[in-house]
Every structure is written in C-alpha cells, then in structure tokens.
Design a protein around this nucleic acid. Structure first.
Length: 304
DNA sequence: CTCCAGGTTCCGG
DNA sequence: CCGGAACATGGA
C-alpha cells in the first residue's frame, strides 16, 4: 500500500536503509517494492521509505525508529575519524549512509549465538524459524509477523525443537544462554551499563558467546562503537590489507592492531570494511587449505 | 563429491 | 598464549 501523504517524516540526510539492513548486523527486515523496508522493532511493526533527504515512517513510531536506526549518530564526523588508507577510503565511499543500529539486546545476542559458522541467509532463516515457532504473532498492515521470543520462551523449549529450526550444534548454546538469562544468573540490562571490558567479559561467560559474538552485541545492541568483531571476513581483510607478509596472525595481535589503528569508531570502520568486502568491492579469495592447481588438460581418471 | 560459512569450546604444548 | 580439532547444516 502506498504511504499516506501525512506519513511522519524523519530528517535523515545520511541514512541508507538498504545498505544498513543488508549489511549483516540484523536479519529480519524485508524490502518492499517501493524501495522501502518493513519489519519489527521489538514488537512494533515498522515500515520506512526513503524520500529525498529524509525517511517516511508510514507504519510504526517515528521516535522509536529514529533511535533504532541510530539517526543521531554523527556519520560525517565518525567517518572523518577513520584512518585514510585506500581500503578504508574505498569502503567508506561504498557504504555511505550505513548506520550501526541499536537492536534489542536479547534478540541481537540470540541471533549472533546462532550465527557461528553460518552464512547471512542461513542466520536469517534460523531467526525466522525461531520467531515463527515461539514468537508473539503480530498483525501488520502487510500480514502477520513474529517478534523474537524472550529468553523465557526459548528456555522452555528443548534442544531438539531448536535443532528443528536448523540450529545444529548451536542449539545447545542458545538454550543454555536463554536459561542463564531467564533464571536471572545474567542481567543484560546490568551489562548495558558496564564499561566495555567488563561488559565484554560478562557476555563471554555465556555459553556460545566468545570474543566475536560479544563484540557484535556490544556494537549492534549496546552502541559501543569501538567494539571490533573479528570474523573470517575481517580476518582476511586485515591479513591481506594490513599484514600482507605476516605468517601467523594471532587473534590477540589483530585485536591490538584494530584497537589502536581504527580508533574510537572502530566498530563502524569494521562494518564498512566487512560489507564492502562481502559485496565484492574488495576482492579477497578465501584461503584454501589445498590450493587448486591449474592444469592444461583434465587430470586422467584415477580409479581405485 | 568437496568446500565453506559474521565461531566457540576443549585440549595439549 | 597458541594451534588443532570437533561441532551441524545447507548452499555453491
């Protein structure tokens, strides 16, 4: 349905929803035919539609949307703090308007627990399966949607049921973490007010949460813009671009480098590098364990 | 068939 | 602190 003429309008001079919502920080939004997006912010049905230097909010609460999409982040100033090497500049140009959004902590944490060794489309599929099975059904103008189920709901599920959502070995981790939170052994809102190192350490006590997932939660839910998740892509980028001759890069060395090189908005820099590389802007061949050998002719058959 | 994916955990140097 | 291996599932 077309947006009503009186749709609330948010000023957003530098906000690119398509890049933001496809950049692998959140997984449950749908593009609409008119170039907008729809999804849930928590349990609030929301639709946004870019319109010039602002966005229309035909459905949902504009204030909630403004906070969720972090329209208060001073993007120009943030990008100005990035190091000015070629890779960083290219990524910054390619990702103009991408924002690090503020997700509800639990659904961010749970989703990234399921993300281990999965591709972005799989993470999305698992999120939808979990939502459809245990989430609150919410009617929206374009049909029903499902909120992410709270920890108590997942804590009451079985590992088998979670595996049926495609979680594999991640099912055990999500279940144990949901129970830790549902039982009150861990308080996410307490973590929200801790300094970065303490918050990171607290998150890492949860099953299925290591350095990388903890940093994703710090960055994508708690607005800790210096948090720098190192996944396979970022590992490749840092190795190839910044340590082209290093033999064995340890996680610790990459952490130390990232913290000092990318600065107070390292999380933004990380997300721009990640998305630019993942969308093909930075050509990075995956490191193969056994490099393929080019042959002039096909190898002869080799029956046993 | 093989390889890989927004990793974490557990184990032995 | 470091390197390896196991861990499920689905798509290329």
């Amino acid at each position: 349905m077309p947006p009503k003429p009186e749709s609330p309008r948010l000023p957003a001079a530098l906000f690119h929803p398509a890049i933001t919502l496809s950049s692998g920080q959140v997984f449950h939004w749908d593009a609409t035919l008119d170039g907008g997006f729809e999804g849930l912010i928590g349990a609030m049905p929301t639709r946004i539609l870019p319109s010039g230097s602002s966005i229309l909010v035909p459905c949902g609460d504009p204030d909630v949307a403004a906070r969720y999409f972090a329209l208060d982040h001073p993007l120009e100033a943030i990008c100005a703090t990035f190091p000015s090497d070629p890779a960083m500049r290219a990524a910054t140009d390619a990702c103009r308007g991408m924002r690090i959004i503020r997700q509800p902590p639990w659904e961010c944490l749970a989703t990234f627990i399921t993300s281990a060794l999965k591709q972005v489309p799989h993470i999305r599929a698992m999120s939808f399966a979990i939502r459809a099975r245990w989430g609150l059904r919410i009617e929206t103008p374009s049909g029903p949607r499902f909120a992410y189920p709270p920890p108590e709901r997942i804590a009451a599920a079985t590992e088998t049921e979670l595996r049926a959502c495609g979680l594999g070995f991640r099912a055990k981790h999500l279940l144990a973490t949901a129970r830790a939170i549902a039982d009150g052994r861990i308080h996410l809102d307490a973590i929200a007010s801790m300094p970065d190192p303490e918050a990171r350490a607290a998150l890492c006590t949860l099953p299925g949460v290591g350095e990388k997932v903890a940093n994703c939660v710090l960055l994508f839910a708690f607005g800790r813009l210096a948090a720098f998740p190192v996944d396979t892509w970022i590992h490749r980028i840092l190795s190839r671009v910044y340590f082209p001759h290093a033999r064995n890069l340890t996680p610790k060395r990459l952490r130390d480098f990232a913290a000092s090189y990318f600065g107070p908005y390292g999380g933004y820099a990380q997300q721009y590098l990640f998305h630019h590389a993942r969308t093909g802007g930075l050509v990075l061949r995956p490191a193969r364990k056994s490099p393929k050998i080019l042959l002039r002719s096909p190898p002869p058959p080799h029956p046993q």
